[in-house]
Amino acid sequence: MDLTRFEHQLAGTGDKGSRALPPVEQWDPPFCGNINLVIKADGRWYYDGSPIGRIALVKLFASVLKREQNQYFLVTPVEKVGIEVEDVPFVITQWHCHNELLQLTTQTEDEFTVDAEHPVELRPPPDSLKAPDSVAIPYVRVRRNLWGRLHQNVYYQLLEKATPVAISKHEISLQLHSGQYQFSIGCLPADSA
């Protein structure tokens, strides 16, 4: 399987003028093996060890990304190929608030509002990002069952806006809200606040 052939199979599967996503949930093509495509922990896409420099191509492939159990695939209506994802496929690179709603943007320009459909959960970071005193960090569901991790800059900027809330006599949660949706972006020992 080469990426050019895969790209041609996807031609016409989406509306060129919109960000509508192809209906990958409805596609159940045969598995055609794995390809040497890796989404690195920093969100960059590599094919055969080289970075994919065309953002339009990365966005196209991201639009047909599918996760089944803990495996990731790129799918077209006629074939499915396995890829490697070091952590999660998306990195949240930008944020802004509009009408008290927290809106996030990924490295592939997916935009969404944090809410019950796009929840935030705290998870341990991957080994490649762990420091000796690592704590759980926020991940956000971008779409379907695909998640993104906050880029370090976004994480620190949001930490500055968070409100410390005691959740026990030993732990403080750093809380934010997006509309009515409340969530934590981190926890600290009570004696460190």
Rank of each mutant, 00 (worst) to 15 (best):
1 M>F: 11
3 L>A: 07
4 T>S: 15
6 F>R: 03
7 E>I: 07
7 E>F: 10
12 G>T: 00
13 T>L: 09
14 G>N: 15
14 G>L: 12
14 G>F: 15
19 R>L: 14
19 R>M: 15
19 R>W: 13
23 P>N: 11
25 E>G: 12
28 D>C: 14
34 N>F: 11
34 N>W: 14
34 N>T: 14
35 I>N: 11
35 I>M: 11
36 N>G: 13
36 N>M: 13
40 K>P: 11
41 A>Y: 14
41 A>W: 10
42 D>P: 05
49 G>D: 09
50 S>A: 14
51 P>Q: 13
53 G>V: 07
55 I>N: 08
56 A>M: 09
60 L>H: 05
62 A>I: 02
65 L>F: 09
69 Q>P: 00
72 Y>H: 11
72 Y>E: 04
72 Y>S: 04
73 F>P: 03
75 V>R: 09
76 T>Y: 02
77 P>A: 07
79 E>G: 08
79 E>W: 05
84 E>D: 15
86 E>C: 09
88 V>Q: 06
88 V>H: 07
93 T>K: 08
94 Q>R: 06
96 H>K: 10
100 E>F: 01
104 L>Y: 00
105 T>N: 00
105 T>E: 01
107 Q>T: 01
109 E>Y: 09
110 D>Y: 09
113 T>L: 10
114 V>G: 07
114 V>Q: 04
116 A>Q: 15
116 A>P: 08
118 H>K: 08
119 P>K: 14
119 P>I: 13
119 P>Q: 10
122 L>S: 12
122 L>H: 10
124 P>A: 11
125 P>F: 07
138 P>L: 00
139 Y>R: 06
139 Y>M: 07
140 V>R: 01
140 V>F: 03
141 R>F: 05
142 V>W: 11
143 R>F: 08
146 L>K: 07
148 G>R: 04
149 R>T: 10
149 R>S: 11
152 Q>T: 12
152 Q>R: 11
155 Y>F: 08
161 K>N: 08
162 A>I: 02
165 V>C: 03
168 S>T: 04
168 S>L: 03
173 S>D: 08
173 S>K: 01
174 L>A: 00
175 Q>S: 06
180 Q>A: 15
182 Q>H: 10
182 Q>K: 12
182 Q>W: 10
182 Q>C: 06
184 S>A: 12
186 G>S: 02
186 G>N: 01
187 C>D: 01
189 P>G: 09
192 S>Q: 14
